[in-house]
């Protein structure tokens, strides 16, 4: 998160064309990683809105530059395609998040509430939170209308047992650095020292249950592939 903020600063401060180019490439790389992570993780991940905003700025800047090129220029179509690809990257990322928010709306809102109470960073961006609340409200109204024919019928079930992401689904991941003694969560309640451990070496590719590596993924020590 901090890295992104710094980069944003660098981008706005950057004077020479070379520097912008370099940081732009890094931003795209970060965006790609966030996109792939989001695509393969079963639950919603902390938002990367700084990267999104930064990349959107880049896209706008590139499009502005493209406008000045004559439409007969061969370079224009190549750059245009590049811009389109970047835009797909951003919108696919945001769409994936929206889809997760909609599917697990009750579950996610409950978790966000807990995070808010314990003063942790929220996983949803401000706009996403607003969207989540709105669709939760609309869904509730729809269900309430359903049982309005007989007041007092219990409908709490869908609130108390919301759809939850399967945290034990398996993911492929690549370790970005050496991580020692990752506890393998096999679903059983193992006491200290009894559970199986595994060491990740840098660059290693591993297939493992998501719940074992959720923390590492959020810290950025590993990435999904």
């Amino acid at each position: 998160m901090d890295e992104a903020a710094i980069e944003e600063l660098e981008l706005s401060d950057a004077e020479s064309f070379e520097e912008v180019q370099l940081t732009a490439a890094q931003v795209i790389e970060m965006m790609e990683e966030a996109w792939v992570n989001e695509k393969f993780a079963p639950e919603i991940l902390p938002h990367k809105m700084e990267v999104v905003d930064c990349l959107l700025g880049q896209i706008a800047y590139m499009e502005e530059n493209l406008q000045s090129l004559p439409s007969t220029d061969f370079k224009k179509s190549i750059h245009q395609l590049e811009v389109d690809r970047l835009r797909f990257l951003v919108s696919s990322y945001l769409r994936t998040r929206l889809e997760k928010i909609e599917t697990y709306v009750t579950h996610i809102l409950k978790q966000e509430q807990q995070r808010h109470e314990s003063k942790e960073d929220l996983y949803l961006s401000k706009q996403e939170l607003k969207f989540a609340k709105e669709i939760a409200e609309a869904l509730k109204q729809n269900f309430d209308g359903l049982v309005s024919f007989y007041p007092g019928l219990p409908l709490e079930e869908w609130v108390s047992q919301p759809v939850q992401p399967n945290m034990h689904s398996f993911v492929f991941l690549k370790s970005k650095k050496d991580v020692n003694e990752v506890v393998i969560d096999d679903g059983s309640i193992a006491t200290e020292g009894e559970s199986d451990l595994v060491d990740f070496r840098e660059g290693a590719q591993i297939l493992i249950a998501y719940s074992s590596v959720a923390g590492l993924l959020k810290k950025g020590d590993v990435k999904l592939i």
Binding site: V52, G57, A60, R87, F88, K130, I135, A138
Partner: peptide, 27 residues
């Protein structure tokens, strides 16, 4: 309601909004 929420979300992304309903497939 859903349309409205979605539209206001799309408008709030970035500086002047982003239409998420296009670019559904990788170009």
């Amino acid at each position: 309601k859903y349309s409205r929420s979605l539209a206001s979300y799309m408008r709030s992304v970035g500086d002047d909004g982003l239409n998420l309903a296009v670019d559904l497939k990788p170009p």
